[in-house]
Simulated assay, not measured.
Amino acid sequence: MPASRSYPEPARGLSGRAERLLPGLAGAAIAVAAAFLVHRLVPVLPAMTLAVVLGVLAANLPVAGAWTAGRARPGLDFAGKHLMRGGIVLLGLKVGIMDVLGLGWLSLVLIVGVVAASFGGTYAISRLFRLPPVTSLLVATGFSICGASAIGAMAAVRRIRHVDTVLPVALVTLCGTLAIGVLPLLVHPLRLSAPVFGAWTGASVHDVGQVVATAQTAGTAALGIAVVVKLTRVLLLAPVAAIAGAHHRLAPRPADTGDGQNTKLPPVVPLFVLGFVAMVGLRSTGWLAPGWLEAGGALQDILLGAALFGLGSAVRVRTLLHTGGRALLAALASWFLIALLGLAAALLIAA
């Protein structure tokens, strides 16, 4: 008799988990659809940025805020963590090795130098403004590589709590959105050609969608080089994640307390980062038809959009205003530094 009662328990457990996740995932799906609809009507607004903004709005409106903090929270947290990883894997389908190598070795060295200087400079600025080391690490990763996707990857590699990614994602979204409005206004005062402006955008703007929205204001010549330069930065996500994972394994760890929590080390490179590298390799073979690449890109956008809505829904503006003043100043200073570094590199890349 006891054995007969033991079988239904897993089924009820799985059903209960699905019921807990469903409200948040359904809300994220609706938000992603709304973000794509607005993007279609107003192309200058990237869908990923809109997803974060919708999440923040949902978290701070009276009725929706109670829903995102209560019944929908498990599904939104699931989206912010697991769907983010799936989106990062599929992001690799946008990066072709031959496109990157086509920039030339000097350009590649310059881009790597910009990423390294941006990472180190942003981390130093964040610590100067007395931000916690974890926040400083995530901000530096997002600003220097590829926005929220890089933040999600670094958080997974270093096993950083989901709640600690909320502020860095908000900052990288804010500054990336700021670039969409500010950088095009500087084209004429700085007398930048379209290729230089495109290279500058690709080297300094955070998210891929934000790069496209910014560069397309100067035409196809700017957009083409902007996307290639940006995807070269995206490609650096894999080595940066590997270095972070190796450092985490080698760092001194607390003595085992006997509960088993300190005995398991994280992998040097998580599976989703290996998946990202595999997708880059698959894209580079040329085996995939354009239709498959488009389908993969569409699915990637859906997964990342849902993840960003989930992260945005954890942002409480009142708390952010009380605790994020120094973080905002650090982010703006870092954004200015990266803009200068990117412009210097762009003048050499597109010379």
Rank of each mutant, 00 (worst) to 15 (best):
V315A: 13
F336I: 15
W335I: 07
L332G: 01
A330W: 00
V317F: 09
W335R: 05
G310F: 00
W335K: 03
G325F: 11
G310T: 07
A330T: 04
H322G: 13
A331F: 00
S313D: 06
L329S: 10
G325E: 07
I338T: 09
V315W: 04
V317P: 02
G325L: 12
A331Y: 00
F336H: 06
S313E: 07
L320C: 09
L320S: 12
F309Y: 12
L321W: 14
A333S: 11
A314H: 12
G310A: 06
L332V: 12
S334C: 09
A333E: 01
I338E: 01
R318F: 08
A307W: 03
L308H: 02
W335H: 05
L337S: 07
T319R: 13
R326C: 06
G325M: 10
F309A: 12
T323V: 13
V315G: 10
T319E: 15
S313I: 10
A327M: 08
V315P: 08
L337T: 07
A331E: 00
L329G: 12
L321C: 13
L321E: 09
R316D: 14
H322P: 02
A330C: 05
A331M: 01
L328N: 05
T319L: 14
G324T: 11
A330V: 04
L328Q: 04
G324A: 12
A327E: 05
T323D: 15
T319K: 13
H322Q: 14
A330L: 02
I338V: 13
S313R: 06
L320D: 04
R326D: 10
A330I: 03
L328Y: 02
G325K: 11
H322Y: 11
A333D: 00
V317E: 05
A307R: 08
G312H: 01
S313W: 02
A339K: 00
A314T: 10
F336K: 01
L308E: 05
A314V: 09
A331G: 04
L329N: 03
A314S: 15
L332H: 00
W335P: 01
R316N: 14
S334T: 08
A339F: 02
I338L: 10
L328F: 10
S334K: 03
A331T: 10
F336A: 15
S334W: 01
F336M: 15
L337V: 08
G312T: 10
G324F: 08
A339Q: 04
L329E: 01
R326V: 08
L328G: 09
G312P: 05
L308A: 09
L337C: 06
G325Y: 08
L311A: 06
A330R: 02
G310V: 07
V315Q: 09
R326Y: 05
A314L: 12
A307P: 03
L308W: 00
T319S: 13
L328V: 13
A333F: 00
L329Q: 04
R316A: 13
G324L: 09
F309G: 11
A331H: 01
R316Q: 15
G312W: 00
R316C: 11
R318T: 14
T319Q: 14
R318L: 12
S313K: 06
A327P: 04
A307D: 07
A339I: 04
R316P: 03
A307N: 07
A307M: 08
L321Q: 11
T319Y: 10
G324Y: 09
F336E: 04
L328S: 11
V315S: 09
G312R: 04
A333M: 06
L320V: 14
A314C: 08
L329R: 08
